[in-house]
Each structure stands twice: as structure tokens, then as C-alpha cells.
Design a protein around this nucleic acid. Structure first.
Length: 222
DNA sequence: CCAGACGTTGTT
DNA sequence: GTCTGG
DNA sequence: CCAGACGTTGTT
DNA sequence: GTCTGG
């Protein structure tokens, strides 16, 4: 699954990678983004070029009555996203990309949990398949997002059985185009093994308030 | 008809 | 909002 | 995702 | 154990 990630590229690099019509607002480099954080997404509303937006990670369905108590959905299973009441409208009309330099997964080894950092073999940015939603409250709208997950590919399987859907640049436009009822389920598959690299990292990443570049660096092997 | 759920993860 | 269960 | 809290009373 | 906060 995907419960933490990093995004530290400069805004100009992100704008170039995703063909943004405007550069994203100045972003603080983040090495430990956790659910409930404000995160950068790329979306394309009613045609035009892809645009950046900051939304809360943890999708709140439109019909949630009490956003305080409602479950925030960090991930959406690709296998069922088209049918689930919480996701299907967003899946049809509000797809987005979630830029990331890499993500963390924890491997359970007996009673211990070893974190790993997963990052692109080439280039510096992943695009996770995402969904966004807008909840209309008395105090204004609240926009949220979820990251779509799929079965782990071979290298990930050694760590965990799920991973985020990582889209190739050639598929960005098709995922983002929600104007027609285009069929995009074929995109919700594990990426090829060669797309990712993995290394063990310090358990310092466990604490969400730790947010330094060292978190993504490989653990020194004794 | 109304009431209540609506999700993922991991763990057992 | 929409679907399922009672 | 993991870490940390998880409660009431009365008083300041 | 379960929920909330980061």
C-alpha cells in the first residue's frame, strides 16, 4: 500500500515533468509526507492543460456528514475503485496524478518493521494514479485525494503485497482526461519491475514529524 | 418504507 | 448520494 | 503509514 | 484494542 512518500523536486522540475500550465506554488521539500497532509496533485478540469492543486491526503466522500468523524481513505484499490460508492464518482470524473520522488513501504519481519524507500530507476519523479474529491461544508469546500493501489510487482512482493499504481508519462493524459467515459482500467496494473529501485532506510521515517533528506538515504549495511 | 453503510490496511 | 438490509 | 493517547473533577 | 494526530 502507500502510506508515506517524499516530494522534494523543485517546482520547475515538477511543472516540466507534468506539462503544467502554471508552476506549483512554492513547495517545501518533503521527505515524509503522511496522510492528512496537504499534498500536491495534478488535475485537468473541463479540458485545458493540467494544473497543480494542493489538497488533503485522505479522501472524504461527498456525502460524508461529519468530516471530523468520517473515515479518510488514503488508498483506493484499483481492482474495485470503479464500483465502490466512496470512489466511483471520483474515478469517473475526478482522476488526478500525485507526483512523488519515492514512497515508503514497511516489511514485517517477525515483530519488527523495516522501512524501505522505493524510487524511480530512471528520472526523478513518479506519478501515482490518484482520485480527488470535493466536500462542501458550511465553512467552504474541502478537497481531498486518495492514491490508487494495485498488486505488488516482483521486486515489491518481497516487501509488501500492495503498491501504488505508477503511471508512465505516455499515460498521464489518458488518466487525467475525465471528459468522456473513457476506459482506463487497463492502466491500473503494477508497473514493470525495471521501473523501480528499492533500498532499506532508517526507522527514523516511522515518526511522521521527522522530515529530513537523510530519511531516503540507504541504510548502511554492517 | 426507513436505517445504516459506504474504505483500506494488517492481523488473527 | 445510493445501495443494502430489515 | 506509524506513534501516541486513551479520563474526570475542580481549580487556576 | 482503537482512535487521532502527524
Amino acid at each position: 500500500m502507500c502510506g508515506r512518500y517524499a516530494l522534494h523536486s523543485r517546482p520547475e522540475v515538477i511543472a516540466l515533468a507534468f506539462g503544467l500550465s502554471e508552476a506549483p506554488a512554492t513547495l517545501v521539500p518533503r521527505f515524509n509526507i503522511a496522510p492528512a497532509a496537504e499534498v500536491l496533485i495534478v488535475r485537468r478540469e473541463t479540458g485545458g492543460a493540467p494544473r497543480p492543486a494542493l489538497v488533503r491526503w485522505g479522501l472524504l466522500p461527498r456525502w460524508a456528514k461529519d468530516p471530523k468523524r468520517a473515515a479518510k481513505l488514503n488508498n483506493a484499490r484499483g481492482e474495485t475503485v470503479a464500483e465502490k460508492p466512496s470512489f466511483r464518482d471520483a474515478y469517473r470524473r475526478r482522476r488526478c496524478l500525485v507526483p512523488a520522488n519515492g514512497f515508503y513501504e514497511w516489511k514485517r519481519v517477525e515483530s519488527r518493521k523495516q522501512p524501505y524507500y522505493v524510487y524511480p530507476a530512471q528520472g526523478e519523479l513518479f506519478a501515482f494514479a490518484g482520485l480527488w474529491e470535493r466536500w462542501e461544508g458550511a465553512s467552504g469546500p474541502l478537497e481531498t485525494c486518495a492514491i490508487v493501489t494495485t498488486q505488488a510487482n516482483a521486486p515489491m512482493q518481497a516487501i509488501h503485497d500492495r503498491m501504488p499504481v505508477i503511471l508512465a508519462p505516455r499515460d498521464y493524459a489518458r488518466w487525467l482526461d475525465c471528459s468522456a467515459d473513457a476506459e482506463v482500467t487497463d492502466l491500473l496494473v503494477p508497473c514493470r519491475a525495471e521501473v523501480i529501485r528499492v533500498h532499506a532506510v532508517s526507522t527514523a521515517v516511522n515518526r511522521a514529524s521527522n522530515d529530513v533528506r537523510e530519511l531516503i538515504e540507504p541504510l548502511e549495511q554492517a
